[in-house]
Every structure is written in C-alpha cells, then in structure tokens.
C-alpha cells in the first residue's frame, strides 16, 4: 500500500518540503512576514497599472519585499540546476498551462492565497478559514484532474 502510494519514494518529497518550510520559517523569524507567493502577481502590476486596486496600500507597501522574495524563488530553482540536479521537461500542452495559469491566477487572488499562503502559512497558523479554502481548492483540483484524464483532454 505504502509502496503504491509513493512509486517514486518519499525522500525527495520530505526533504524538499523541509527546504520549502525552512524558507517560510526564515522569512518569518527574520522579518515577521508570512510568505505566500500569489500576492506578488498583483504587486508586480502596481509598477505599471494605475488601477485603484493595484495602487492600494496593502499591495504597494509589500511590493518591494515580494519582488525580492520572488527573485529568490527563481534563484532557488537556478541553484538546483547549478548543483547538477535533474530537471525533466514537461509534456503538459501550452494551452493548458496558459488557461490553467490564468484561471488559477485569478482564483488565487480572489481567494486570498494559493498553496503557499493558505496551504502552508495559513494551515501552520491553524487558520480555520485557510483550511476551508485548502479543502475547497484541493477537492476541486482533484475532480478537475480526474475529469480531464477521463475525457482524455
């Protein structure tokens, strides 16, 4: 049962999760901030759009640290490659990446967070609201992924 549940083993998941957690922990201990990622995608628009939402205080005041944090995320991926660790190319078609990205980007902002904000920071803060959102997006995504596979899309 356990072997079937983890056909690629457990180690990379547990160790990877610890590094992810260590990143969020480092941000919290050093700056006191909760490190969800999706707000960055609104904050970056504040540099080019004058729309009131993008110029609101919560978005503008956090844009600088979010830019630095997101730069770190990109560099973390680059470090992984620089250490010679393997990366497999994806075979998910571009239209799914584009459409899925757009819907999830809108949804993450409307829902107040994504897998890191609600999933890690919210749940680790024992926020009941975050837990309910995680249950919502996880069950929706499971249904969608199964339907997409069943239909052969």
């Amino acid at each position: 049962m356990l072997i079937n549940a983890f056909p690629h083993g457990m180690q990379q998941y547990l160790v990877g999760g610890l590094f992810i957690g260590l990143g969020i922990a480092t941000l919290f201990v050093s700056t006191g901030r909760m490190g969800g990622v999706s707000t960055f995608f609104s904050a970056i628009w504040s540099y080019v759009s004058s729309a009131p939402y993008f110029q609101s205080a919560p978005i503008v005041s956090g844009r600088r640290w979010r830019l630095v944090y997101s730069t770190g995320l990109v560099l973390g991926g680059a470090l992984y490659v620089a250490l010679g660790l393997p990366v497999e190319a994806t075979h998910v078609p571009a239209w799914k990446l584009a459409v899925g990205g757009a819907i999830s980007g809108f949804g993450a902002r409307l829902g107040g967070g994504c897998t890191s904000g609600h999933g890690i920071c919210g749940m680790a803060s024992l926020s009941v609201g975050s837990m309910l959102i995680v249950l919502t997006f996880l069950s929706t995504a499971i249904v969608v992924a199964h339907v997409v596979r069943a239909l052969g899309i």
Partner: peptide, 27 residues
C-alpha cells in the same frame, strides 16, 4: 474567497502549476 478557491482549484487541476513553482521552475 470560496469562489476564488474553486477557481484556483480548476486552474491548478488543469495545468498542475501554482505560483511558487512557476517562478522556481523558470529559474
């Protein structure tokens, strides 16, 4: 925010990418 969660789930279930991995993956 519940509607947001459902939309996020639809998009995530379709493409398998969320905001953090999109940034790290490009790196």
């Amino acid at each position: 925010s519940l509607v947001g969660g459902i939309l996020f789930g639809i998009g995530w279930g379709l493409c398998g990418v969320c905001p953090g991995p999109a940034l790290a993956g490009i790196g």
